[in-house]
Amino acid sequence: MMAPLPSLPDRGGPAQPMLTVTGLRRWFKLDSRRVIRAVDGLDFSVAKGATLGIVGESGCGKSTAAKLVAGIEAADAGEVVLDGEVFWARGARIGPEARRAVQMVFQDSHSSLNPRMTAAESIAFGPEAHGVKPAVARAYALELLEAVGLPPDRFADRSPLALSGGQRQRVNIARALALRPRVLLLDEPVSALDKSVEAQVLNLLVRLRVQLDLTYVFISHDLSVVRYVADEVAVMYLGQVVEQAPAATIFAQPLHPYTRALFASKPSVDPRRRIAAPPILGDPPDPVDPPSGCRFRTRCGFAEALCATGTPPLGAVAPGHRVACWMAVPRSGHSKAGVAA
């Protein structure tokens, strides 16, 4: 593909993480007394060309985190470093070139496409805004449509209303790619799709990442999907990361009780191997008034007095494997301290 916009040059070399996020925070004020701590101290980094999967239940702050990283939503605190250079910090503006480097595919594929533009127009819009001539931008849009599996002769001039969910999601992906980003933030890109279409889109994403030398942050509430696409997995609960590890490690040896419960809640397709009892009870608590200490303690089978008073740190239990649970902290005072790890 001949892209009319240049890909942004690599600066830090292969060992420099593509994305480093520290102390990211966003609280939403509901009124004078109530605050939702949507994202409450997030740290992670993503290696170049890798995929970080973020998994967690509804309302835990996944979409907010992605918008903060992309700079679409302003953070209260924190810093995002892109390939060794500050992408944004509080109060700083993101230049248009830097902004191009980080693109997001939104959760809601319906409302994120303008119904008055055709598929090709939506894709060409970004490059045109960056000064690419309309005819060139359109030619590139057609190439991208082809690349995402939508033959342009059939799809270029369709309105989003005349596309299926899977087709619309591919237009969204093409539109993000048109700006030649280095990082793609994918917010639940397949969750609205039928299972048969899900496989098509996931294969496409895996292929594009290599072809276009991209780094992904892939958000999903579906564990199998995250397991499939990710090299590294972060599990979120109520605005915080509770466990992070390489995908192979976390699926082989999940340590946080919430991660384990999440894994054990996934039905298999074998009717002979049914789940006997729910792994944990209750719903996630109200984010306006999260539990003190460990936020998972109200649903945790191992909670002890300590868990209500102290917030467990997200600490390394092995190289690259971080867990926020008192059981993983030797001599923390939890009766099972050190046993789990």
Binding site: Q167, V197, A199, R227, Y228, V229, A247
Partner: peptide, 22 residues
């Protein structure tokens, strides 16, 4: 085909089986 499309394993192992078309 539906059973084949169930997401399992990781991308490094094998591409997912697709059900073409809609």
């Amino acid at each position: 085909a539906l059973l084949g499309c169930v997401v399992r394993g990781g991308y490094a192992e094998a591409p997912l089986v697709e059900l073409a078309g809609s």
